[in-house]
């Protein structure tokens, strides 16, 4: 299906090397969490994975095809990308916003072909937006907007979904809801890569983890094999205690260890 391969990916932002030889394999149909401190290169890695930014070295392959050699439209049909705090600038209805996700599949001129209309309803249904379809997107609450943007991203049924900080600005209930919906996409066969700061949610839902710091890969693999107290401590420079109980694993950062 759609496994993702990073082959020695390096990237620059200006003169600075922000990614340094990342090599990893992201299994298809997995929800993969990219974790790491601010400035680690998470967003750059997602930009490169989505094909929006080119690596200075190395390549990213989806199903053995180099992402950066695909045509603009071909790539747009294959993967969807949701940047951080994605929003809409005009009071367009939710239904129209979701329809924008079909842009790469549209003919050069004219309206949406009727064969594509069921996809919009499916996406609205999957994101519990049927009651909001005629609401202007500028009037949605944060949680509703997050669902509308997710519907926009999945309406074209992408093989690869890349999401930068799906939980930013959301309260706990909506944050859990957002990650659960991403997890639900993987059961439909979609490979999902998300950058996330909320480690509790990452540990609870992600199938695999990519941990990066200063542009280098510290660890990658199945979540429960890779995530240890020592990894998280060296990742964030803060002592970490992992506690397991009946509700799963939770991460505690020990403030006392932070040197000022």
């Amino acid at each position: 299906m759609s496994a993702l391969h990073f082959h020695g990916v390096s990237a620059r932002r200006g003169q600075r090397l922000v990614l340094d030889g990342i090599s990893a394999r992201v299994p298809s149909g997995h929800l993969t969490a990219v974790i790491g401190p601010n400035g680690a290169g998470k967003s750059t890695l997602l930009d490169i994975t989505s094909g929006l930014k080119r690596p200075v070295q190395g390549s990213v392959e989806l199903d053995g095809k180099d992402l950066h050699r695909l045509g603009r439209r071909e790539l747009a049909k294959l993967r969807a990308y949701l940047p951080q705090r994605a929003g809409v600038d005009w009071p367009i209805t939710v239904e129209r916003v979701v329809a924008l996700g079909l842009t790469p599949a549209l003919p050069a001129f004219g309206t949406i072909p009727s064969a594509l209309l069921p996809a919009i309803d499916d996406a609205l249904l999957a994101c519990d937006l049927l009651g909001l379809r005629d609401r202007p997107a500028t009037q949605l609450s944060g949680g509703e907007l997050a669902r509308a943007m997710l519907a926009r991203a999945i309406v074209g049924d992408p093989a690869l979904l890349i999401v930068d900080e799906p939980t930013a600005g959301l309260d706990p209930r909506h944050a859990i809801d957002a990650v659960q919906r991403l997890k639900a996409r993987t059961t439909a066969g979609c490979t999902v890569v998300m950058a996330i700061h909320d480690l509790d949610l990452a540990l609870a839902f992600a199938d695999s983890i990519l941990a990066i710091r200063d542009g280098r890969l510290l660890a990658h693999g199945p979540t429960h094999e890779v995530v240890t107290e020592s990894l998280l401590t060296s990742l964030y420079d803060v002592p970490v205690r992992l506690s397991r109980d009946g509700d799963g694993i939770s991460v505690r950062f020990l403030k006392s260890g932070v040197s000022s």
């Binding site: 747009a76 049909k77 924008l100 842009t103 790469p104 926009r152």
Partner: peptide
């Protein structure tokens, strides 16, 4: 025209939808 529709989602999302 079509590019402007997609740009309602911001430049990054428009770019990801295949808009130059």
């Amino acid at each position: 025209g079509r590019a402007l529709d997609a740009l309602a989602l911001g430049e990054a999302q428009a770019e990801s939808l295949g808009i130059a």
